[in-house]
Computed example of a mutant assay.
Amino acid sequence: MLKKCGFDVQKFEGKTPGIIVPCTLHEFNSPRIVELAKQALLLYNDTNNTNFEYDCLVKANSKLVAGRIYYITFEALSSNIRATFRARVWKKIMNIGSEIQFIEKFSETFE
């Protein structure tokens, strides 16, 4: 089973290699993070035969590795269901691709 830590981290003052930190406001508004969330949602839909559509980013954390691992929390809609998803996506070094390591529907509400 995959470890799901990294989605709820506190702000940490200091620079420690390999630590998971919240994305800065500039990073948070990055189209890159939204695109990674959409890629993860596409995989979730394909795997679970669902039709969720990306709605909004809730939060994102990241860790510097050979590239960057993003821990993304976002919302998506499917008819009258609003669901919160969590995805861990590795954006590989030198932009040679990305790998969706984990995607789950964390919670859902009916509208």
Rank of each mutant, 00 (worst) to 15 (best):
Ile20His: 02
Glu53Asp: 12
Thr47Trp: 09
Thr16Gln: 11
Arg32Ile: 11
Lys11Pro: 03
Glu104Thr: 11
Gly67Tyr: 07
Glu108Asn: 03
Lys105Met: 13
Thr73Trp: 00
Lys4Thr: 15
Lys15Gly: 06
Lys4Gln: 12
Asn29Pro: 00
Thr24Tyr: 06
Ile69Pro: 01
Val65Cys: 12
Phe52Pro: 07
Ala37Ser: 15
Thr109Glu: 14
Ser79Gly: 00
Tyr71Val: 07
Ser78Lys: 06
Ile19Lys: 07
Leu43Cys: 05
Glu111Phe: 15
Thr73Leu: 06
Tyr71Ser: 05
Cys56Ile: 10
Val34Met: 10
Ile100Glu: 02
Arg68Trp: 05
Leu42Met: 07
Leu2Glu: 15
Val65Tyr: 10
Tyr70Ala: 08
Lys105Glu: 13
Gly18Pro: 00
Leu77Ala: 03
Ala83Gly: 14
Val9Gly: 01
Ala37Trp: 02
Asp55Ala: 11
Val58Lys: 09
Asn45Thr: 04
Gly97Phe: 02
Glu104Phe: 02
Asp46Ala: 14
Gly14Val: 02
Val34His: 04
Cys5Phe: 13
Asn29Thr: 04
Asp46Arg: 11
Ser62Cys: 14
Asn51Lys: 13
Glu13Ser: 11
Leu2Asp: 12
Ile81Glu: 13
Pro17Cys: 04
Cys56His: 12
Glu108Phe: 03
Leu25Asp: 13
Ser30Lys: 01
Val21Cys: 07
Leu57Ser: 11
Ala60Asp: 05
Pro17Gly: 02
Thr50Tyr: 06
Leu77Ser: 07
Asn80Gln: 12
Phe52Ser: 09
Phe28Tyr: 09
Asn45Cys: 09
Ile81Tyr: 02
Leu64Gln: 12
Lys4Ala: 13
Gly14Phe: 03
Val9Arg: 08
Met94Asp: 10
Gln10Lys: 15
Cys5Asp: 15
Gly18Ile: 02
Ala66Thr: 12
Met1Tyr: 12
Val21Asn: 04
Phe28Val: 01
Tyr70Gln: 06
